[in-house]
Design a protein around this nucleic acid. Structure first.
Lengths: 119, 119
DNA sequence: CAGAATCCAACCGGATACTG
DNA sequence: CAGTATCCGGTTGGATTCTG
């Protein structure tokens, strides 16, 4: 897809061009902005966690929401879902490298929010 | 407000405690997660911008949305609103230091989203 | 120019109940 | 245990029109 560059009739770069950088922010927000996304990623950062454990850790979120966010994150390659054929089945969710870098980005946000709250 | 620390009946720190760190992420998201927030902040980063210019820069957003986000950002101290008593009046929006640090955090998100898109 | 007012659609998040 | 199904209310985002 070609970059959409706005130029006026004289070929000058338009100073009011809707630059693409904020768009990347929006895209990131769409992926990471869900209400429980940060929590889920955070809780997975060190070790695999099972579905119901996650649901307990993240107090306030219904199973439906957990499921929804989990599917979403999986679709974007931020986490992996592994089914262990025990009985009853248990399902592990683990964070991927891609997910870990996302968490780094979120960490910047977290620090900012902390200062915001403090000061 | 006291920190809500969950402990079990024996006073042990609960391993499943809904830790507060992701909550900070959520708070940050509430402030910065609005659809046009990133764009607005971004366009203000270098110089003051007037309302209608902003509305033009951010293609796709209605004036209502701009206004709404602007008020929101102002309430959180991320931007300043300055009315110049010209005729007709013109209004400048400028980013504050606090807003600038927020933009830094958003930049991490942006980089992540860029890689996400590329790879 | 810089909004406010109104109305509306879509989506998000949540409660509850059910399933293999 | 690990979800799915259904329903529902609130919020978000947007189009349009009007105003000092």
């Amino acid at each position: 897809m070609r970059a959409r560059v706005t130029e006026d009739s004289k070929g000058r770069r338009n100073a009011l061009e809707p630059c693409e950088k904020p768009c990347a922010i929006e895209r990131g927000m769409r992926i990471l902005g869900g209400k429980w996304t940060g929590s889920i990623l955070w809780h997975l950062k060190d070790e695999p966690v099972r579905f119901n454990d996650l649901a307990r850790m993240i107090n306030g979120a219904s199973k439906k929401m957990i499921t929804e966010r989990l599917r979403h994150l999986e679709a974007h390659g931020l986490i992996n879902r592994t089914v262990l054929s025990t009985s009853p089945v248990s399902v592990h969710y683990t964070i991927t490298d891609h997910g870990r870098t996302a968490l780094n980005a979120l960490d910047a946000l977290r620090h900012w929010a902390d200062e915001e709250a403090g000061g």
